[in-house]
Protein backbone atom coordinates (compact mmCIF):
# COMPACT_ATOMS: atom_id res chain seq x y z
CA UNK A 1 0.00 0.00 0.00
CA UNK A 2 2.73 2.40 0.99
CA UNK A 3 4.51 1.57 -2.28
CA UNK A 4 1.39 2.45 -4.22
CA UNK A 5 1.09 5.77 -2.45
CA UNK A 6 4.76 6.56 -3.09
CA UNK A 7 4.40 5.74 -6.79
CA UNK A 8 1.36 7.96 -7.17
CA UNK A 9 3.12 10.81 -5.41
CA UNK A 10 6.21 10.32 -7.58
CA UNK A 11 4.08 10.41 -10.73
CA UNK A 12 2.38 13.64 -9.70
CA UNK A 13 5.68 15.15 -8.59
CA UNK A 14 7.08 14.41 -12.04
CA UNK A 15 4.10 15.97 -13.78
CA UNK A 16 4.35 19.04 -11.55
CA UNK A 17 8.04 19.35 -12.41
CA UNK A 18 7.15 19.15 -16.10
CA UNK A 19 4.17 21.51 -15.98
CA UNK A 20 6.00 24.30 -14.16
CA UNK A 21 8.17 24.96 -17.23
CA UNK A 22 5.08 25.68 -19.31
CA UNK A 23 4.94 29.17 -17.79
CA UNK A 24 8.11 30.05 -19.69
CA UNK A 25 6.47 28.83 -22.90
CA UNK A 26 3.57 31.21 -22.14
CA UNK A 27 6.02 34.07 -21.52
CA UNK A 28 7.86 33.45 -24.78
CA UNK A 29 4.63 33.21 -26.79
CA UNK A 30 3.36 36.51 -25.38
CA UNK A 31 6.68 38.24 -25.98
CA UNK A 32 6.72 36.90 -29.52
CA UNK A 33 3.23 38.32 -30.08
CA UNK A 34 4.25 41.72 -28.70
CA UNK A 35 7.33 41.71 -30.89
CA UNK A 36 5.58 40.64 -34.07
CA UNK A 37 2.72 43.08 -33.59
CA UNK A 38 4.73 46.09 -32.48
CA UNK A 39 8.06 45.73 -34.23
CA UNK A 40 7.15 43.67 -37.29
CA UNK A 41 3.63 45.14 -37.47
CA UNK A 42 2.14 41.74 -38.28
CA UNK A 43 0.52 40.07 -35.26
CA UNK A 44 0.49 36.29 -35.37
CA UNK A 45 -2.86 34.58 -35.39
CA UNK A 46 -1.59 31.73 -33.23
CA UNK A 47 0.69 32.90 -30.41
CA UNK A 48 -1.88 34.37 -27.98
CA UNK A 49 -4.27 31.52 -28.62
CA UNK A 50 -1.61 28.87 -28.10
CA UNK A 51 -0.69 30.59 -24.81
CA UNK A 52 -4.29 30.34 -23.55
CA UNK A 53 -4.41 26.68 -24.62
CA UNK A 54 -1.29 25.94 -22.55
CA UNK A 55 -2.60 27.86 -19.53
CA UNK A 56 -5.22 25.22 -18.58
CA UNK A 57 -2.86 22.22 -18.58
CA UNK A 58 -0.31 24.35 -16.68
CA UNK A 59 -2.40 25.02 -13.61
CA UNK A 60 -4.44 21.81 -13.74
CA UNK A 61 -1.38 19.57 -13.60
CA UNK A 62 -0.14 21.50 -10.58
CA UNK A 63 -3.23 20.65 -8.50
CA UNK A 64 -2.71 16.97 -7.64
CA UNK A 65 0.84 17.36 -6.32
CA UNK A 66 -0.23 20.50 -4.46
CA UNK A 67 -2.53 18.21 -2.45
CA UNK A 68 0.57 16.29 -1.34
CA UNK A 69 2.38 19.50 -0.48
CA UNK A 70 -0.63 20.64 1.57
CA UNK A 71 -0.63 23.74 -0.60
CA UNK A 72 -4.36 23.96 -1.22
CA UNK A 73 -5.89 26.77 0.75
CA UNK A 74 -7.70 25.61 3.85
CA UNK A 75 -9.09 27.28 6.95
CA UNK A 76 -7.25 25.44 9.70
CA UNK A 77 -8.08 27.62 12.72
CA UNK A 78 -10.27 24.89 14.27
CA UNK A 79 -8.82 21.72 12.75
CA UNK A 80 -5.26 22.59 13.79
CA UNK A 81 -6.30 22.04 17.42
CA UNK A 82 -7.59 18.51 16.75
CA UNK A 83 -5.46 15.53 17.78
CA UNK A 84 -5.50 11.73 17.48
CA UNK A 85 -8.45 10.09 15.81
CA UNK A 86 -10.29 13.35 15.33
CA UNK A 87 -7.35 14.77 13.40
CA UNK A 88 -7.15 11.65 11.21
CA UNK A 89 -10.91 11.81 10.66
CA UNK A 90 -10.79 15.47 9.62
CA UNK A 91 -7.92 14.77 7.23
CA UNK A 92 -9.94 11.96 5.66
CA UNK A 93 -12.97 14.25 5.27
CA UNK A 94 -10.82 16.66 3.29
CA UNK A 95 -9.42 13.88 1.11
CA UNK A 96 -12.88 12.44 0.44
CA UNK A 97 -14.07 15.89 -0.66
CA UNK A 98 -11.07 16.19 -2.99
CA UNK A 99 -11.79 12.74 -4.44
CA UNK A 100 -15.48 13.56 -4.92
CA UNK A 101 -14.48 16.78 -6.63
CA UNK A 102 -12.16 14.87 -8.96
CA UNK A 103 -14.73 12.14 -9.63
CA UNK A 104 -17.43 14.57 -10.70
CA UNK A 105 -15.09 16.59 -12.88
CA UNK A 106 -13.97 13.31 -14.47
CA UNK A 107 -17.46 11.89 -14.96
CA UNK A 108 -18.77 14.97 -16.73
CA UNK A 109 -15.68 16.01 -18.64
CA UNK A 110 -14.92 12.70 -20.38
CA UNK A 111 -18.05 12.79 -22.61
CA UNK A 112 -17.34 16.44 -23.49
CA UNK A 113 -13.76 15.68 -24.48
CA UNK A 114 -14.87 12.65 -26.53
CA UNK A 115 -17.48 14.82 -28.23
CA UNK A 116 -14.91 17.51 -28.96
CA UNK A 117 -12.65 14.84 -30.44
CA UNK A 118 -15.35 13.24 -32.60
CA UNK A 119 -16.58 16.61 -33.91
CA UNK A 120 -12.97 17.54 -34.63
CA UNK A 121 -13.86 20.73 -32.74
CA UNK A 122 -11.77 23.77 -33.63
CA UNK A 123 -11.69 27.21 -32.03
CA UNK A 124 -13.10 28.87 -35.20
CA UNK A 125 -10.53 31.65 -35.01
CA UNK A 126 -8.15 32.85 -37.69
CA UNK A 127 -5.66 30.17 -36.55
CA UNK A 128 -8.44 27.59 -35.99
CA UNK A 129 -6.63 24.80 -34.10
CA UNK A 130 -8.34 21.62 -32.84
CA UNK A 131 -8.99 22.02 -29.14
CA UNK A 132 -9.68 18.58 -27.67
CA UNK A 133 -6.06 18.02 -26.55
CA UNK A 134 -6.27 21.06 -24.24
CA UNK A 135 -9.69 19.99 -22.93
CA UNK A 136 -8.37 16.46 -22.29
CA UNK A 137 -6.17 17.79 -19.49
CA UNK A 138 -9.26 18.30 -17.30
CA UNK A 139 -10.24 14.59 -17.00
CA UNK A 140 -6.56 13.68 -16.81
CA UNK A 141 -5.98 16.05 -13.89
CA UNK A 142 -9.20 14.86 -12.25
CA UNK A 143 -7.91 11.26 -12.30
CA UNK A 144 -4.54 12.37 -10.96
CA UNK A 145 -6.27 14.32 -8.17
CA UNK A 146 -8.31 11.27 -7.16
CA UNK A 147 -5.18 9.11 -7.17
CA UNK A 148 -3.33 11.63 -5.03
CA UNK A 149 -6.25 11.76 -2.58
CA UNK A 150 -6.01 7.97 -2.37
CA UNK A 151 -2.26 8.15 -1.78
CA UNK A 152 -2.70 10.73 0.97
CA UNK A 153 -5.41 8.59 2.58
CA UNK A 154 -3.06 5.60 2.58
CA UNK A 155 -0.40 7.70 4.25
CA UNK A 156 -2.83 8.97 6.89
CA UNK A 157 -4.15 5.50 7.70
CA UNK A 158 -1.01 3.39 7.48
CA UNK A 159 1.73 5.79 8.41
CA UNK A 160 0.01 8.19 10.80
CA UNK A 161 3.25 9.16 12.52
CA UNK A 162 4.69 10.34 9.20
CA UNK A 163 1.83 12.74 8.65
Amino acid sequence: MITLSRRITALNRGLFAFAKWLIYAIVLLMLWEVLSRYVLSSPTSWAPELATLIFGPFFLLGGPYLLHLGGHVAVDVASAKATGRLAVGLKLVGLVLAAVFGAILLWFSVPLVMQSFSYGETSYSAWNPIIWPAKAFLPLSAVLLMLQALAEAIDVLFEPEAV
Partner: peptide, 15 residues
Protein backbone atom coordinates in the same frame (compact mmCIF):
# COMPACT_ATOMS: atom_id res chain seq x y z
CA UNK B 1 -15.12 33.63 -40.02
CA UNK B 2 -14.78 37.42 -40.24
CA UNK B 3 -11.17 37.11 -39.06
CA UNK B 4 -10.35 34.90 -42.06
CA UNK B 5 -12.22 37.18 -44.49
CA UNK B 6 -10.61 40.35 -43.14
CA UNK B 7 -7.22 38.63 -43.38
CA UNK B 8 -8.00 38.00 -47.07
CA UNK B 9 -8.46 41.76 -47.46
CA UNK B 10 -5.02 42.38 -45.99
CA UNK B 11 -5.84 43.02 -42.31
CA UNK B 12 -3.44 41.55 -39.71
CA UNK B 13 -5.95 40.05 -37.33
CA UNK B 14 -5.33 39.77 -33.57
CA UNK B 15 -7.74 37.58 -31.62
Amino acid sequence: LASAVMADFGVSVSP
